[in-house]
């Protein structure tokens, strides 16, 4: 099935294009890929990428080569919540390796795997610019910092119960970025 952005997103894309010179609409590609990932099930399928290419009058390959270069784009379906734990030096100094182990044990899955209930995928990522408050993980738009076992427990519980969403409230006038929390609706 060909994906289709909501009319709201389509009009946002028109506004987005005005932010770059007329003949440079390709610049809008990264922001639109973020929108596509959020709106089309949390990952970029080939169909989604082809659709984005058609919106920007690009060859599909121009979209694939970009989508495969950047780590934020998932090319395969993921769990509802992708827990991206920073593994880089400063976080490792504060115990990131242990947090990854703890998550694996707690959720019973390995890195890049999804729990059977489809809720959680664990990934390792590089430095998130949160080194002073590590260990840290990103879930959607939310950073969960200063991780301890207890914090991981309460985060998982809160995500399950819906108490914690993986996005911050969107400022009222910001039309550009759909939040990851929207992707399930």
């Amino acid at each position: 099935m060909t994906p289709q952005f909501s009319s709201q997103t389509l009009s946002n894309i028109e506004i987005l294009k005005t932010r770059y010179p007329v003949e440079q609409s390709k610049s809008a590609l990264l922001p639109i890929l973020h929108m596509a990932q959020a709106e089309f099930g949390g990952y970029l399928s080939r169909e989604s990428m082809d659709y984005v290419a058609s919106l920007l009058n690009l060859q599909p390959i121009e979209v694939y080569e970009v989508a495969t270069f950047y780590t934020m784009f998932h090319l395969k379906p993921t769990g509802k919540y992708v827990l991206e734990v920073c593994r880089t030096g400063p976080c490792a100094l504060s115990g990131a390796e242990h947090i990854v182990d703890y998550l694996k044990q707690k959720l019973g899955v390995d890195l890049n795997q999804t729990t059977p209930d489809g809720l959680f995928t664990i990934k390792e990522v590089e430095c998130l610019a949160s080194c002073g408050s590590g260990p840290v993980l990103q879930v959607g738009e939310c950073y969960v910092e200063n991780l301890t076992d207890q914090r991981v427990d309460s985060m998982l519980a809160a995500l399950k119960s819906g108490e914690l969403s993986d996005n911050e409230p969107t400022p009222a006038h910001s039309i550009l970025f759909r939040t990851c929390g929207d992707k399930q609706s």
Partner: peptide, 25 residues
């Protein structure tokens, strides 16, 4: 204009950043 990247350390390098801002790798 605020423009988001896609996750890549190399895009901090100024000319890579420009390429990225142009919608490329």
């Amino acid at each position: 204009v605020v423009h988001p990247g896609g996750g890549a350390y190399i895009c901090g390098e100024e000319s890579a950043l420009l390429e990225s801002l142009e919608g490329k790798r």
